[in-house]
Design a binder for these strands. Structure first.
Ligand SMILES: [Zn+2]
Ligand SMILES: [Zn+2]
Ligand SMILES: [Zn+2]
Ligand SMILES: [Zn+2]
Lengths: 141, 141
DNA sequence: TTGCAAATGAGACTCAATATCAATACGGAG
DNA sequence: CTCCGTATTGATATTGAGTCTCATTTGCAA
């Protein structure tokens, strides 16, 4: 089942309607390489449907996040960025404050440890976000 | 050396001036319990000096962060929140999405592991942020 | 004290994100 | 398939945290 279909199932489950706008948005999001923000996605969608509105993109992005097709993260300046989940599952980020490069990683020790910590506090973890900031190898003097 | 003095030293080092406004802001920040945002701090400072401007608070907060007297974090909605460093050092957060409670924790296994991951990528970590989201014990059905 | 750069207050401004609302399009009932 | 109620949309106004501007004030060193 491909990503677009998955989204249609999600819409059906939630009694939301399958519309041309939403379809264009998922397909475009799926075609984005790497990280993008709402405005970049809007521009991209406009190439297919010049009448799409900014509001529709801003309204659809949270749906894609809920459907787990898109991952949202928040930068230091508070702006939201997204990336389409190309099936490579959960991962965390290292962000270079100099050149902006984003390195993705996944460490099972950390993942596991978080579960243990949550348990210790009787906290029911739904998700988490780990961002390591600093300088990447290219930017280290 | 108390926190206010520490800030004065910081100002001197950076050739910044010690002013009444900055003094009121540090002292007020130091008296804040738990987490607060810029507007809450502004209100609090206004009780001592009704003429303090929003801009001064917004200009001073980054100084407090640089001076390591205040810790800044960014919420899921992009807003910045702060907390005065009562000397209890680095810690990460668990945030209850239901009631908003913030649980602080520190886990050395995770702290250590992050250093190792950064090293593996020749990444020079300056700081990091880990936020675990979910439901606290009081909000679990 | 004097002089000047730094800092301030007040408010204009920015810009991502949200809200509004009339017009439109979806999709289930018939 | 057609009809109808409602979810969705586009266009635009509005919000709100945070930043910028600039005339005025303040700190501080000579
Ligand atoms: Zn993780
Ligand atoms: Zn870099
Ligand atoms: Zn940590
Ligand atoms: Zn709770």
């Amino acid at each position: 089942m491909d990503k677009t279909e998955l989204f249609n199932h999600f819409l059906a489950e939630k009694s939301l309607k399958k519309t041309q706008g939403r379809d264009n948005i998922v397909k475009t999001a799926a075609s984005m390489k790497g990280h993008f923000d709402a405005e970049q996605l809007l521009s991209a969608v406009k190439k297919k449907d010049s009448k799409i509105s900014r509001a529709s993109v801003y309204r659809t992005l949270p749906l894609l996040v809920k459907a787990e097709l898109v991952k949202e993260s928040i930068q230091k300046d508070g702006r939201r960025i997204y990336e389409f989940s190309q099936g490579h599952g959960h991962h965390d980020h290292m962000l270079c404050v100099q050149c902006g490069e984003i390195i993705e990683f996944r460490d099972d020790v950390i993942e596991q440890r978080q579960k243990q910590i949550a348990e210790k506090y009787n906290f029911k973890m739904t998700d988490h976000r780990l961002e390591i900031r600093g300088l990447c190898s290219k930017c280290t003097p």
